[in-house]
Design a protein around this nucleic acid. Sequence first.
RNA 1: GGCGUCGUAGCCAAAUGGCUAAGGCAACGGAUUGCAAAUCCGUCAUUUACCGGUUCGAAUCCGGUCGACGCCUCCA
Length: 523
Amino acid sequence: MLRVFNTLSRTKEDFQPVVPGKVGMYLCGPTVYKPSHIGHMVGPVIFDTIKRYLTYSGYDVTWVVNITDVDDKLINESNARGIPMSAVAEEMTTDYKNNLAAMGVDTINVFPKATDYIQEIIQFTSDLIEKGFAYESEGDVYYDVAKFSEYGKLSNRTLEQMSGEGGGTADRKRSTFDFALWKSAKPGEPSWDSPWGKGRPGWHIECSVMSCSLLGETFDVHGGGLDLQFPHHENEIAQSEARNGKPMAKYWMHNGLMQASNEVGKVGGRKTREAGSEAKEGDLASQEAGKISKSKGASAFRDLLKKFQPENIRFFLLSSHYRRPIDYSEERLAEVGKGMEGFYRFFKRYEELTGESFYDLTAPKTRADGDAFESSAQWGAFDEFGAHVKGLRARFIEAMDDDFNTAGGIGVLFDFLRALNKFVEDQKLAESPNPAALDALRAGATVFKELAQTLGLFRAPVPEEKAADDALVEPLMQLIIDLRRNAKKNKDFATADEIRDRLKALGVALEDRPGGVCVWSRE
RNA sequence: GGCGUCGUAGCCAAAUGGCUAAGGCAACGGAUUGCAAAUCCGUCAUUUACCGGUUCGAAUCCGGUCGACGCCUCCA
C-alpha cells in the first residue's frame, strides 16, 4: 500500500486518489525572470520520480507545472534589460525547459502560462467578489482573509497568532494579511482590461485558476517547495475553496529546500543576502566558501551541467529523502558520481558478457507486469539467485511505497548491483559463458532496470566524450595494446607497466581482463 | 516573538516502538592478479547530541538542556 505524507494532516496517509485509477498532480513552477539554478530542479526531479512511481503502480497520472510569466520581478527585469516582459519570459522558459530535459524530467503533461489564463483569472476573481470573499479597492482586488475561517490550516497558524507582528501598512487593504488577486497597472506596465480597470493578476490566483481549469475543483496531489507553504499555498487554498466550496487538493506534498553547504541559510536565502558579502556573482567556488551575494545565490544550472553529468545530479537529488533539506556542494556531487561508477561498469560488463546493451533491455513498465515477469522468469538452476532478486525487488518497492523513499530505494539498488556482480563471479561468466546462466543474468538485469526506471535512472548511456581524433586514436591504442601484450608474453613486465603508467599520466586507463584481454578508457 | 524542522560512524544518508541500526564515500585486511585496476569476501555505530521519563521493549514516544536550520517578506 502506497503511503504519502500529507502536509495538511502532518501524517503519512494511505494514497487513494479522488477518482480510482487516475491521479491529477500540480506542481508550482518557476517565475521565469532569471536562469534557473539547482534549487529549481529539486521539485521537478522529485515529482517526476513520483509520477514515474505512480505510473508504475498502475495509475493514469496527469501532471501540470505552471509557468509564471507575469509578475513584479519580470517587470523589473524587463525594464532593466530594456526588452519586453514577454521576451524575458520566453528566454527563461526555454532555459528552464532545457534544464528539465537535461535532468530527464520529461513526464510533465501541461505547462500552462499565467498570461494564457487572464480571462479565467478575471472570472475567478469576480466570482470571489460575488461570494463576498474579495473586494475592490482603487483598482486593486484583494482577498478578504478574515472571511475564510479555515485560513492558516495548511501552515498551522491563525490570524490571531500572526497579528502583532510588524507587517506593512494596510494601505488599500482591510487587513495586512489580505493579498492581491488583481493589481492595477502603473503607466507603462503590461496590463489587461478588467472590470476594475487595466491591471494584472496577483501572484497566487493563477495557480488556483489553472489547477482548477486543468485538473478540476478537487485534484489529488499539490506539490511545491516548503517555502511555498506560506503564504502561497495557504492563499491558493483560500481562493479555491472559497470559490468552489470543496477541498482544493487531497494531498499536499512539500519538498525540502536546497542549502549551500557551509552556508547560513538556503541558497539565495534572506540571511545570506543580509550578510552582504562581496563574492563574485555566480561563482560556485565562492558559494561553497559560504559567500553568496547574488539574490538567487547559486549560479545558473546550465553552468553546473558543464561540470557534472545530468544523471549524476539527478542521482544526488534522489539520494536523500525529499522532505529533508539537501546540503549542496560539489564535493558531495562528486562523491555521488564516484558511487555511480560501479553501475556503469556493470553495464559495460553486461554488454561484454551478453553482447547486448543493458539499455536495450525491455523491462516491465508496471508493478503488475513486473510481478508476472518475476514469476515467469527462467531462473533455471539458479533459483537461489532468483530468490535473491525477488527479495531485492520487494525491498525496493517497500521503500518507495513508504512516502517515496528514494534514498532507501537507491540503497537497494547498490545491494542489487553487488548481487549481479557476485553472480557473474560465482558463475565465472567471464571465463566460461554458460547460456543458462546468461539467461538468469539477463533476467536479473531486467528486474534491476524495472526498478531503476521508476527513479528515472539509467535510461540511456551516458554520452562518452568522444574526441574528434578518435578515428586515429582507436587503432593507435590497439597498436599499443598489442605491443604491450607481446611484452607481457615475454615476461617483460617493466615495459608493460611503463606503458600502463605513462598512459595513465595521459588520462588513459588500461585494465587487464581474464583471457589476456585488455580494455582502455579515457578518464 | 509565533509556527515548524533537524541533530544516526571520519563524511553523506536510510530506518520513526520490537528480527543483526540499510546503503554510499573514505580507510584497512583477504581472495584474484606477474603487479595493478575492476570484482567478490571481511573489518569499520553494544549504539542514534546530552539528561531524565513512559514502556516488557525507544534512534523512534514524552519532558528538559545544548546545537543547527526553515517559514512568518520575493523564493522551487
